[in-house]
Computed example of a mutant assay.
Amino acid sequence: MAHTVRELLGRGYNYLKKNEIKNPRLEAELIVCYLLDVDKAYLYTHPNRIVDEKIINKFDELTSKRKEGYPIQYILENQEFMGLDFHVGEGVLVPRADTEILTEYIIKMALKCEKEKLNIMDIGTGSGAITLSLAYYIKDAYIYSVDISEDAIRIARKNKRRMKLEDKVKFINKDILEGFPQIDEKMDIIVSNPPYIPSRDIDDLQIEVSKYEPRLALDGGDDGLVFYKYITKKAREKLTEDGVLCYEIGYDQGLSVKNIMNENGFKNIEILKDLSGRDRVVVGRMN
Rank of each mutant, 00 (worst) to 15 (best):
S64Y: 13
H87I: 13
I202H: 04
I197V: 15
Y144F: 15
H46K: 07
D279C: 11
E29Y: 08
F171R: 03
L36A: 08
P194F: 10
R236H: 11
V94P: 01
I176S: 04
C33R: 09
P24M: 14
S127E: 07
V5E: 04
I120N: 06
D167N: 15
Y34R: 14
R285K: 14
F266A: 09
L76E: 02
L255G: 01
G220N: 04
D52A: 06
C113V: 05
A129K: 04
D122C: 08
M187E: 07
K67C: 14
K22Y: 14
D201N: 11
N264V: 05
L26W: 12
K174D: 09
Y105N: 13
V169E: 07
S149A: 10
Q79N: 06
K160M: 12
G128S: 04
D279E: 13
M261K: 06
E178W: 09
V257N: 02
P214S: 10
H46Y: 00
E100T: 07
Y136R: 12
Y34D: 14
K17L: 11
D223K: 08
G250L: 00
I148E: 12
L218H: 06
L239I: 07
S133G: 01
L62I: 12
E7A: 06
I106N: 05
F81R: 02
E61C: 00
E104F: 06
V32T: 11
N173W: 00
E20I: 00
D252Y: 06
C33N: 14
D223C: 00
T131M: 13
I183K: 03
N57T: 07
I50R: 12
I31G: 01
I56A: 01
V38C: 14
D167H: 10
I231G: 02
I183R: 07
D204N: 11
I31L: 10
G224F: 07
R215K: 15
P195K: 02
V146N: 09
S276G: 10
I271C: 04
D184C: 09
E68L: 12
I107H: 12
D39Y: 01
R157V: 02
V281R: 02
V226Y: 07
N57V: 05
